[in-house]
Amino acid sequence: MNPSRLLQRELMGISAVWWREFKVFWREKSRIISSIVQPLIWLFLFGSGIGASLSVENVHYRDYIYPGILTMSVIFGSVFFGLYIVWDRKLDVLKAVLVAPVARISIFFGKVLGGCTDVLLQVIILFSFSFLFPAVDLRGIPQALLILLVTSIALVSLGLALGSLLESLEGFQVISAFLVFPLFFLSGALFPLDERLPSWLTGLVKLNPLSYTVDGVRGALLGMNRYPFWVDLGIITLFASVMLIVGSVMFSRMK
């Protein structure tokens, strides 16, 4: 078979998996709704509450954490989307897909695309609430979207990598407690990275690649960034590339 035909086959395989993920996403309306409602609760209940007695550099706390909460929904949405293959494997849903004449890596890419699409649609819905946050500059949305997309690629890959390792759903809790929550809290999503922080915390935040997502989105939407946008984007892109490689290797080795 000639190479272009082969490539066409693989692309069809990728789009098949993508199509399936989108169908599933669209069918589970309750999941979409809760993925929208949860960040809104953070913003309006948590953000407004703390915001009553706190602001950061004269920005209302609720507005200040808006970029962080967007990042949060990308973190949770992406990692758990990837981890979901544990469940798929348990139900043997993946089995029929894995024996198709499509390379494993194409199935992996289809999954990544599917996950990113889900997460990005959620983010876009959240963006439609931007007008409720006076400090947010709407012109920054495209930049924010770009950096969140790359972050989502990284984290869906991470989730798939972990999902190919896990044997049972019990691992969900462990990953949730030891990985997802620390990644979120150490991203500076909820607090500014200033000199008042203990140095160990500052160190951990700086090591967390997702801190650069938060910084990039905050820069784009609020103009409150520590690093230039291209540095944030560069670091996240590097992280995503590593995760894509790790994820595709792990996924290919999955039994």
């Binding site: 069809m12 098949a16 599933v24 029929a96 004449p101």
Partner: peptide
């Protein structure tokens, strides 16, 4: 090994694409 969140037709559509 059916995808139980898809319809019968959708299962076949997925297979056809793959």
């Amino acid at each position: 090994t059916l995808d139980t969140i898809l319809t019968g037709r959708e299962n076949l559509q997925l297979h056809a694409r793959l």
